[in-house]
């Protein structure tokens, strides 16, 4: 009974994520209009056949901008998770495998990073090193390192005392090979779950930073930026703000459900 409920989450999540991924893929080849093309005769159109989601304050097609914005969101999500995953696994496995003083030092550094509230850290980072999408991705990536490091380390701590690791050592397998080939696969499933969840929070953080004007720079489309631009016209053209809002919600919801679903399936206790 319980299991079915969780897999339901999984299905919903996968449908939403597939839908968004579809939009991203299509946007590489086709958008209804050029994203930056302005048409002042067609400002603030309500959704109609010509412009399915209406137009914005420059008469630009909102659907096209949402599609291009999805590229931004996925790009930021993928790259920041990539950064977090790479360094997280590296630090976590070294800490977990060698233990002792190395473990102590690395994990205390991780604790220090995690002590910063995420968005605040990103704000600080972007304020010091300059605005733009690259710095946003790096900042979000750094933010997500500790959680991956912790997951990896705990996996290593569980597996390392097992007999087969000792045997591998005794036949002279290199430390690196033991870490990557013999231990790491055990940690993959919680890492996937963390990736999915992390992806959602990266999308949200990018939207937040762009909303504050620190992330993606205009005229490049980003969901968060669209949200902040539309705020001025909230009364006049409500669809303009609702649409990017829905897409941000959808992607956060989708990836969280997916993560939830995966963890339920892979967790032997349930």
């Amino acid at each position: 009974m319980k299991k079915r409920k969780y897999s339901f989450n999984f299905y919903i999540g996968i449908v939403i994520v597939a839908f968004l991924l579809g939009i991203v893929i299509v946007s590489f080849f086709y958008t209804p209009y050029t994203v930056t093309q302005m048409n002042i005769g067609k400002k603030f159109l309500k959704p109609c056949w010509e412009h399915l989601l209406g137009t914005d304050h420059f008469g630009r097609d909102i659907l096209s901008r949402i599609m291009m914005g999805s590229q931004t969101a996925f790009q930021v999500g993928l790259i920041s998770i990539g950064i977090g995953l790479f360094f997280g696994i590296l630090i976590g496995s070294i800490a977990g495998y060698y233990g002792g003083i190395v473990d102590e030092i690395l994990m205390r550094i991780m604790d220090a990073v995690i002590a910063f509230p995420g968005l605040l850290f990103a704000l600080m980072f972007v304020a010091v090193l300059g605005q733009g999408i690259v710095n946003t991705m790096i900042a979000l990536g750094i933010m997500s390192i500790p959680q991956f490091a912790r997951i990896t380390r705990s996996g290593f701590l569980q597996v390392k005392p097992l007999k087969y690791i000792d045997m591998a050592k005794s036949i002279g397998v290199s430390n690196f090979r033991i870490m990557m080939v013999h231990i790491l696969p055990n940690v993959i499933s919680p890492l996937i779950v963390a990736c999915s969840m992390g992806f959602a929070s990266a999308v949200l953080a990018e939207a937040g930073l762009s909303y504050l004007g620190l992330g993606v720079q205009p005229p490049n489309p980003s969901w968060g930026r669209m949200l902040s631009e539309s705020q001025m016209y909230l009364l006049k053209a409500p669809t303009y703000s609702i649409v990017p809002g829905i897409f941000i919600t959808l992607s956060v919801l989708g990836f969280n459900l997916l993560g939830d679903g995966i963890s339920a399936i892979r967790d032997p206790r349930k």
């Binding site: 930056t36 605005q131 720079q217 205009p218 005229p219």
Partner: peptide
């Protein structure tokens, strides 16, 4: 970045300068 009017003007100008192959980019501060 706090002057919405100027930010929007910049967006329009970026678009217009494309016609003469000037690649303008906006930096909000």
């Amino acid at each position: 970045s706090n002057y919405d009017l100027h930010v929007k003007t910049a967006e329009v100008i970026v678009e217009q300068l494309k016609a003469v192959d000037i690649q303008a980019s906006i930096e909000l501060v």
